[in-house]
Write a protein that binds this DNA or RNA. Structure first.
Length: 226
DNA sequence: AATGATATCAACCGCGGCACC
DNA sequence: GGGTGCCGCGGTTGATATCAT
């Protein structure tokens, strides 16, 4: 016997979220935190599955989300990280506080990919596009290297964690992005993982409400609030 | 102004790893 | 230890917006 099923798929709502649903989900999470996504829709009174609620919160409702287009610096960083990590969007997103893996993935697929092709670069290998016969050879070479790069990356990360080094890409990016977070959220509120989301309380929410960044989150939604 | 093409991005789907029973 | 479900991830789809003709 395993766990109970995540949700009854029958009768669940799908498609775009309404403002009312957003309000319900946001209010519930801000008041109760997140213990178990399976229970969130039930307790919040939503006809959605937990997976859908999780996605909506992570990609759209989280108060620490950075709005607006990615900067050129961020774009360069994405390209650099992608050359090292490949399509591991969640790993790449950890270098960009306030950005979601979905956002970065979309940005890559719709814009960066095109730009690279225009520059004559292969978006997969990040190397100049050559003839087809060379492509196959290069692709094999690339895949052989992936495992090696991965272990290097993990090693880098472990080294970084041990030494608290400030020299890596991650540190450089975090130092600039955390300024945004500090302004918006204060030092007590860091929403990077499930555990910290669970600690997201009304107190931190009220502090956050005093900031311009908070109200930017509701651009376009304001008319619908009472 | 109407229509088709293209770009954008929110949301869904399916899978793998891990935790739970 | 094995079966089952949850969570998170990456790939993909489809609705909407924008641009070109």
């Amino acid at each position: 016997m395993g766990r109970q099923p995540c949700c009854e798929k029958v009768g669940l709502k799908r498609g775009p979220w309404t403002i009312e649903e957003d309000n319900k989900l946001m209010n519930f999470i801000l008041n109760n935190g997140i213990q178990c996504w399976r229970l969130v829709p039930k307790l919040a009174g939503l006809m959605r599955c937990g997976k859908s609620c999780r996605l909506r919160w992570i990609n759209y409702l989280r108060p620490d989300l950075k709005r607006g287009a990615l900067t050129e610096a961020e774009e360069d960083m994405i390209i650099e990280l992608h050359s090292r990590l490949g399509n591991r969007w969640s790993k790449i997103a950890t270098h960009f506080p306030g950005r979601t893996d979905n956002e970065i993935k979309n940005y890559w697929n719709t814009r960066i990919k095109k730009k690279m092709k225009l520059k004559g670069l292969d978006p997969v290998t990040h190397e100049p596009i050559l003839s087809k016969s060379h492509d196959l050879e290069k692709e094999m070479h690339h895949h052989q290297n992936l495992g090696f790069q991965e272990s290097l990356e993990d090693h880098d990360q472990m080294q970084h964690n041990r030494e608290g080094s400030s020299m890596s890409i991650q540190s450089r990016e975090e130092s600039s992005c955390n300024k945004n977070l500090d302004v918006g959220l204060g030092s007590s509120l860091v929403l990077q993982n499930k555990e910290s989301l669970g600690n997201f309380t009304m107190d931190s929410y009220h502090n956050f409400m005093d900031t311009q960044f908070f109200w930017d989150c509701f651009t376009g939604l304001g008319d619908s609030f009472p």
